[in-house]
Design a protein around this nucleic acid. Structure first.
Length: 106
DNA sequence: CACGTGACCGATT
DNA sequence: AAATCGGCCACGT
């Protein structure tokens, strides 16, 4: 990971590399971005994505395997996950054993 | 510079 | 098992 890149830039690269049909957690993204305790900031970055971004932000969930968004936003993320074959319960829970992405490579 | 704010997390009740 | 408590740190004001 390029340590000269800004935090949001690093987050973008990591999230962009999550394969379709898989998910990861805010904490893991923070870890890979080189700030192991900046999970909240990952959420902050995803919230402020530029309009029209193609980044698969919906593939990031919390440590419980649950969608952290609420209301209509929760439903939007749920639809996005369902549409790529990920099973999501009505209240936004995902089977992490099955869908969790394990990063491999420098 | 000094707060206040979270799409969070781990440890501790 | 679930709620609470600190800690965290990038960002805005």
């Amino acid at each position: 990971m390029d340590t000269h890149a800004t935090f949001p830039q690093r987050v973008y690269l990591i999230v962009a590399s999550i394969p379709e049909g898989h998910v990861t957690t805010y904490g893991d993204v923070a870890l890979l971005a080189g700030s192991p305790r900046a999970a909240r900031q990952v959420g902050g970055v995803l919230k402020r994505l530029p309009e029209g971004s193609r980044l698969p932000w919906h593939r990031v969930v919390n440590r419980h395997g649950a969608i952290s968004l609420t209301g209509p936003d929760l439903q939007r993320q749920r639809e996005a996950l369902l549409s790529e074959g990920i099973m999501v319960s009505g209240d936004g829970h995902i089977d992490m054993e099955r869908y969790r992405w394990h990063y491999d490579r420098p």
